[in-house]
Amino acid sequence: MKYIYLSSLIIAMSAFLFMGCDNADYKAQGNSLYIADAAGTAKATTITMDGGADINVTVRLAQKLGEDVEVEIGFTPEILTGYNANNGTEYEALPAEHLPQGATVTIPAGEISATFQLHIDDFTTNGITYAVPLTLGNVIKGNVTKSAAQGRFIYVLSKPLNVSVPVMKPVGSDKAETDPEKDWGAAVETYTLEAWVRMSYLSRNNQAIFNVRANNELYIRFGDANSPYNYLQVKAHGDGGTDTARDWNINEWYHVAIVYNGSELIIYRNGIRIAGKQVPVPKGGMIINGLQMISSGSSWFRAECAMSQVRLWNYARSEAEIQNNMFFEVNPKNPNLIGLWPLDEGDGNTFKDATGQGRDMTAGAGLIRRWEHNVRFDKK
């Protein structure tokens, strides 16, 4: 009888354990809802807005449940404030008219996740980078709570540049420049100058793409005295020059960024550092008073130079900042911009300063040979 009793007890315990294992995936205890993208270390991700954008938001359970779980999808602009402060960004919340009202997502019984697709129609951003600060709202159905730490995530919308660009080649002393009679008086300790550039000819030296009018030299050209001339040289603060390797190709778009961080002059190409040199701090500081483009005259400048998105900043941009913004507009209201010339007018000979500071550039009468339209730098 004892043997039978023990066997019965073992069978009962086994049945209990089996039932417990069978239901393990459907426990509510300790369960929570969270956004799958928020489960990693990133607090935001960038979505390319090319003719609109689709954001796929996967909502997950820590454990499956034997009932449907429904949760609200909310949008909380306030979470951008802290994110911008901590990351040096200036994202703005996507206007409410682009967002759905009363959105929910349902995870069916026995499933671990469900995906909510948010479609954003294309719209003009005017250089502003918008973001969707998404949060999980009220749990409408299901015995589960939402995660506080992983119940929110930021989706950044970046719209690739698709612009008109001028193709320039000087006649005589033609150049493009800001008003030479007006000094800006922009005092800087560090700076960044960046642009997209394409050259049709690199077999001549001293083809100057930029000449910053300042109390200390900042002169950027293709080629010095020694051939071959397919390299970029930056002469800064009286230094002999910082040179890149001789590996630039004709008829190829390059993103160029010249960064001075207070001690070193760094050249970036397509977001990657390719040259750097210790350069003395300018005596008396650096006072920037104007800007010239294609400035060495027709006897030296033989190329047709296409150029776009000229940006002059009053600080040293990081490699990440350069890479993250090469293919996209920047906010013209950014207070760190000394000037912003998109060069995307499509006609005429005036390049507007998008910052609104009135630092427009005027091109010489024969400088602009033609305009090219619908140029995409992310699809070179």
Rank of each mutant, 00 (worst) to 15 (best):
283 K>W: 05
352 K>Y: 09
340 L>Y: 15
289 N>L: 00
338 I>E: 05
314 N>G: 10
305 C>A: 09
305 C>S: 03
287 I>M: 12
285 G>I: 11
360 D>R: 00
281 V>H: 13
291 L>I: 13
302 R>C: 04
329 E>N: 12
316 A>K: 13
340 L>C: 08
283 K>E: 15
297 G>I: 02
279 V>N: 12
322 I>C: 02
348 G>Y: 10
344 D>A: 15
361 M>N: 06
310 V>G: 02
304 E>H: 14
293 M>S: 12
288 I>L: 14
365 A>C: 02
287 I>N: 11
286 M>Y: 12
304 E>F: 13
313 W>P: 01
303 A>K: 07
343 L>H: 07
349 N>F: 11
329 E>Y: 06
337 L>Y: 12
299 S>H: 03
347 D>E: 15
299 S>M: 04
348 G>L: 11
367 L>N: 08
284 G>W: 11
342 P>C: 10
306 A>E: 01
284 G>V: 07
335 P>Y: 08
318 S>N: 13
291 L>A: 01
280 P>C: 02
315 Y>D: 12
301 F>D: 07
363 A>E: 02
306 A>Q: 07
279 V>C: 13
368 I>M: 06
343 L>N: 08
305 C>I: 06
328 F>T: 10
285 G>H: 10
345 E>C: 03
291 L>N: 00
304 E>D: 15
313 W>T: 04
281 V>Y: 14
368 I>C: 04
345 E>I: 07
318 S>E: 13
349 N>G: 06
321 E>K: 09
298 S>P: 00
285 G>R: 12
348 G>E: 12
319 E>T: 11
359 R>W: 04
280 P>G: 05
301 F>S: 05
299 S>A: 08
341 W>A: 01
281 V>W: 10
281 V>L: 11
355 T>R: 03
348 G>K: 11
369 R>V: 07
326 M>A: 01
342 P>R: 09
313 W>E: 01
